[in-house]
Nucleic acid binder design. Structure first.
Lengths: 338, 338
DNA sequence: TTGTATGCGTTATCAT
DNA sequence: ATGATAACGCATACAA
């Protein structure tokens, strides 16, 4: 591998001068600089990032630690993170954790010296996983429970969004509204359930356990849960799924059972993934600005890195927005062309 | 930040001994080892990855350079990559390139010293982007054109998959089969188009330009293209979309136009994303083992890293598989429960 | 404007 | 079994 020494030798200068050329110190004579660049190009030299960060103690890299997220959500959140990171001149080191807590700790330790800060999305395990990781390492929690922690965080307005959607269903006359819950132990799932119940209570409706079905955020889970709900008597008249994937699975199950949406059953989801509007019928949902979520997390992390000293924890909630399409039976404004 | 020196001092040993404990050399007396581990835990010490890799010249990290991929595909390929990488004890450094060639080169240079090898997915720009990157850096091309290059690569059996699907449509009696093409300049898109034309010629049908519509791999693109196709006279009787997202957009457009699928128009996609089977009607597609694609690329890259010396280029194509559901009007075997 | 020398945190080599 | 020290590739303070 060609190093700064090789370039220096062939260009007849010291390594310091080569270093100056590549680290942007604008003090090298133009002529010298050009000669060095030429030699470097010929040798295909590129500075060694590891060595560089060892001395500057800046890696210009952000660690991203995510659970084994599903489809569209993962994609969008990474997009937002990557975009914001590169705007700040950072790269991202991504890791998916499959086995919960121990793995999170181990991964965070492995990132020591490779990243300047970490974005941790840990919706399933408690945030006190942070006890044994190197201190001084700036961390931002994403979509995770933060109670008892002093860590910065960015979350979604889950409860509020769910509450609005369920209230909307109630305003359409529904009283027996079922929910297909998200993965058990998941933070977002719990919050959405909370919003669902709150909306019912707001309207004087008692939440019923039989109308709260387990789900796992997948289409298959939504499909199965919808099947169960159809067997209940009296049937619910509306289904609120804790994410769009499950809502789509539910739509499929209803179609097969000959249940017409929204005439016989209203359906609504959460996230508003791009596909939602292409469903039949187009799916009402709670829009989550997923890529913004990632971008905001990065911005907060970058702040934390800049002012490395302690600061009061920053807590941010990205706003959701009700997107009403025809699947919930509202007198819809029709479907706008994409 | 606490370093190996701090641990050594507090544990009354030399840095060398601490190093031995953390690098797994099993030569330290149990008693000493325990004392060191205790001190390290108290101090929350974690070895500095950058410094470590500087001397071992191993980063245990793989660079992953992807275009701004869409949704499900991105998610799945990363899943496969991450899984295989972590099995080999590697992390992944991900970067999305938004602006094509120059950015690819720059990113690859920035990865020097941070990664042991690179996975490059460059379906839009030619693979000779590799001219100016550090030599000796093992690279595997994913879903990219490889002509004229000596680089290892993993691609999809695009042409074969498309050909099979279109042949299937022909076998159902269709003669006027339209295609909604993928993004222009895209390698996979070009290959799928090639397979489409080959299937037509196999059956003695002349490919018509008016039946080849531009698309961009998005739902919106598929929606628009399907609208155009409906205006052609005589109408095509089948639409083959170069990916599922566009097929889903097309289904939506057809539905709005009152065209019944598959009675009035057959539709098929490519990729077989999880959602395909939940569409109405369930979407026939060419299944691509996306996460396998990523995993295989990692395995090949790891081989390349192990035997650093030159080797004949490894070229691999992951197999596709026809998945026939009801959207193309075949006497379907019904829809299996998820 | 350029060169010399030191050190970043760690592992490898050679002693002991 | 443990310690002393050189090296990894580079950036920077200081000298020239």
């Amino acid at each position: 591998m060609v190093t700064i020494k090789d370039v220096a030798r062939q260009a007849n200068v010291s390594v310091a001068t080569v270093s100056r050329v590549f680290s942007g110190a604008n003090v090298v004579r133009e002529e010298t600089s050009k000669r060095i660049r030429d030699v470097a190009a010929k040798l295909r030299y590129a500075p060694h990032g590891g060595a560089r960060s060892l001395i500057t103690s800046k890696t210009h890299t952000l660690g991203v630690l995510l659970p084994d997220l599903y489809g569209e959500f993962f994609s969008e959140v990474i997009r937002g993170i990557d975009l914001a990171a590169r705007q700040g001149g950072y790269h991202i080191l991504v890791s998916r954790s499959y086995e919960g807590r121990g793995e999170i700790e181990e991964t965070m330790r492995a990132m020591r010296g490779r990243v300047d800060g970490v974005l941790l999305m840990s919706p399933d395990v408690d945030a006190d996983s942070l006890r044994n990781v190197p201190s001084n390492l700036p961390v931002v929690l994403v979509c995770s429970a933060t109670r008892g922690s002093q860590t910065d965080s960015v979350t979604i307005q889950n409860s509020r969004g769910a509450r609005q959607m369920v209230s909307h269903l109630i305003s359409l006359g529904h009283r027996r509204i079922a929910i297909i819950k998200g993965a058990s132990g998941n933070y977002d799932a719990a919050e959405r359930l909370r919003g669902y119940r709150a909306a019912l209570r707001d309207a004087g409706i008692t939440p019923l356990r039989e109308l709260e079905r387990d789900g796992d955020f997948t289409e298959a889970g939504g499909y199965a849960a919808a099947g169960e709900l159809l067997a209940i008597s009296p049937r619910p008249t509306a289904i609120f799924a804790a994410n769009d994937s499950m809502a789509i699975g539910a739509l499929s199950a209803l179609r097969e059972a000959g249940v017409i949406v929204p005439k016989d059953m209203a359906v609504a989801g959460f996230d508003d993934i791009p596909l939602a509007r292409y469903m039949d019928p187009p799916l009402s949902s709670v829009k989550v600005p997923i890529s913004n979520l990632g971008a905001r997390a990065v911005e907060i992390l970058l702040q934390g890195i800049a002012q490395k000293n302690g600061h009061p924890p920053r807590r941010e909630r990205v706003a959701t927005e009700l997107v009403i399409r025809s699947s919930c039976g509202a007198p819809s404004a029709g479907r706008p062309p994409p």
